[in-house]
Write a protein that binds this DNA or RNA. Sequence first.
DNA 1: TATAAATCATACCAAAAAAGTAGGGTATTT
DNA 2: AAATACCCTACTTTTTTGGTATGATTTATA
Lengths: 152, 152
Amino acid sequence: MKLTTKARYGLKICLELGKRPQRFISTSEISEMTGYTVKYIEKIMNSLKKAGIVRAERGAGGGYMLSRPAGEITLGEIIRPLEDNLEFIKCLGVSCCPGEKHCPTYGVWQRLYNGINSVLDSMTLQEIIDDSINMGDRHEESISGPRCNHRC
Amino acid sequence: MKLTTKARYGLKICLELGKRPQRFISTSEISEMTGYTVKYIEKIMNSLKKAGIVRAERGAGGGYMLSRPAGEITLGEIIRPLEDNLEFIKCLGVSCCPGEKHCPTYGVWQRLYNGINSVLDSMTLQEIIDDSINMGDRHEESISGPRCNHRC
DNA sequence: TATAAATCATACCAAAAAAGTAGGGTATTT
DNA sequence: AAATACCCTACTTTTTTGGTATGATTTATA
């Protein structure tokens, strides 16, 4: 039950695209902004493109941009294609427990799945962009304790 | 973002213990009921014991039983010790993003964490036991499509 | 029309995590 | 004393994740 870097990085990348709407941004620009490698960014963008979140333009001057306004994209829409559709267990849509009449935990995982999706779909990309602009330095005071030491 | 087998198996084991309260059940009995290996069950029970969910008795006639009535145990309490405390990302309690003033996704993961926990803490083990008894065969009709083919 | 800048596609590799095993030790009952 | 059963540590195997590498295709521009 760990979020993959694809989802974490992917969301950060979408935030950057959302801050600079209506223009194509290349993978090398994204790499400079985020510190991720170009190749890994390509992989992430490929998933986001298939999902219809971003559109790409090839050739010189090309790159990626959001295919819709950030206010019309939920975080769930971004994270699902990067996180195997958030199917944290195999038997979600399909039924399970071969040999058993009734799977007692089926409903549990169903509710959890719905809960996760409803949290993520309740936030739009634009809201997170606005937050990060409004917060500015204000948050800095509150981060004085230990820090995680992984790449965000 | 996959649930581990430890959590899945662990919940199923707790259901079995909850159905037979007030007596000690050995790992070999659990193995017969579930099909999991004794050694792996031992590992799971060890985590649950540390978390105070079950208590153990050693020696002949020993085994495991729930340390509280199933109605007083939430699913979150069972799953957290088996799933690395449900910390799906490293920077949840602690602050993150070294070198950045403000982590724009901090709040996102915080809300998701709260959502996951609140879903799981809203269900008691007893409720799931009751469900599985009430449902009985009724559920069987609804499972006609494809099935997941992993061990539940 | 060449050249450079870019995405696209496929395959591969290495590190980490998950899943499960092995072997022996210790406590308890009979 | 013998059998049962948990406890503890370490190990191995498998799967997933987190990338890389190579090269092809598309597009703008000089």
